[in-house]
């Protein structure tokens, strides 16, 4: 086998893939959140719809988005493979299990696969709600004075979708799941990369906690806002 394949299929190599794709997806979350927060603007969806147009038409962003899909799939598949292999490493299960850990959230650390699966399902539904509807042209068109092209009115779809309390509930639960996933995942990615240092690790862990709480909370704020406030 090629040395690089051997490397990536070693236990540490597999974790490296999880770590790097995970960190990339964290970055994606930030960008995605920044765009979505425009939904909170009281402009009838103008900024958001223009943003959505740019995101789907700029070739560079398009390329990056394909990369994102790939990384999501890679992260998910690798995660599932690892979870299955790790479960197999202990066929005879304990009758009593406890959850003691040091420096990471025990529930999150142990349930990464479960949380990840929830997020994967969420991504599927989420993309069905918006991405697919946009791709398949199920949206009305809108023309703004501030922008030269006619754009799809995704905002309308958002508004409609978040009128359904079950969908809102699902979104909020998914974001709680994401929060726990990040609570372990963020700092864990650095540990996997070998970055554990008495001076910097406390900062990374603090940053990870903040990230894991703030980012999903802001995401969750959008459906809540549409349901209850707007």
């Amino acid at each position: 086998m090629n040395w690089f394949v051997r490397f990536l299929t070693s236990s540490i190599g597999k974790k490296l893939i999880m770590s790097l794709t995970g960190l990339f997806l964290c970055l994606f979350l930030v960008v995605h959140l920044a765009g979505n927060l425009q939904l909170l603007l009281d402009d009838g969806g103008e900024a958001f719809n223009i943003y959505a147009y740019i995101m789907t038409h700029n070739p560079l962003i398009k390329a990056v988005s394909y990369g994102t899909y790939f990384f999501i799939i890679l992260h998910a598949i690798q995660g599932i493979i690892l979870a299955i292999q790790n479960r197999k490493a202990r066929k005879s299960k304990y009758s009593v299990t406890v959850t003691r850990t040091t420096g990471t959230n025990s529930f999150a650390a142990r349930q990464m696969a479960l949380l990840g699966s929830l997020i994967l399902v969420f991504i599927g539904i989420h993309m069905g709600d918006f991405w697919w509807k946009m791709k398949s042209g199920q949206t009305s068109m809108e023309k703004y004075d501030s922008f030269q092209f006619e754009v799809q009115n995704l905002y309308e779809k958002v508004d409609a979708t978040f009128a359904n309390e079950w969908i809102v509930l699902f979104y909020v639960i998914s974001m709680i799941g994401l929060s726990f996933h990040l609570l372990h995942g963020f700092q864990s990615a650095f540990q996997t990369l070998g970055l554990n240092h008495s001076k910097y690790t406390p900062f990374i862990k603090g940053l990870g906690k903040g990230f894991a709480i703030i980012v999903p909370a802001l995401f969750a704020l959008i459906p809540i806002y549409y349901m209850f406030i707007k």
């Binding site: 070693s10 236990s11 540490i12 597999k14 974790k15 999880m18 690892l82 292999q85 790790n86 479960r87 197999k88 490493a89 202990r90 959850t99 003691r100 850990t101 040091t102 420096g103 990471t104 025990s106 650390a109 142990r110 990464m112 372990h184 700092q187 864990s188 540990q191 996997t192």
Partner: peptide
């Protein structure tokens, strides 16, 4: 690491139960 992998142990996912 190669020997560890071939012994059939699971992969580390930084749960830190080991240290605990």
């Amino acid at each position: 690491i190669n020997q560890m992998d071939s012994e059939g142990f699971g992969a580390c996912s930084n749960i830190t139960a080991c240290e605990a």
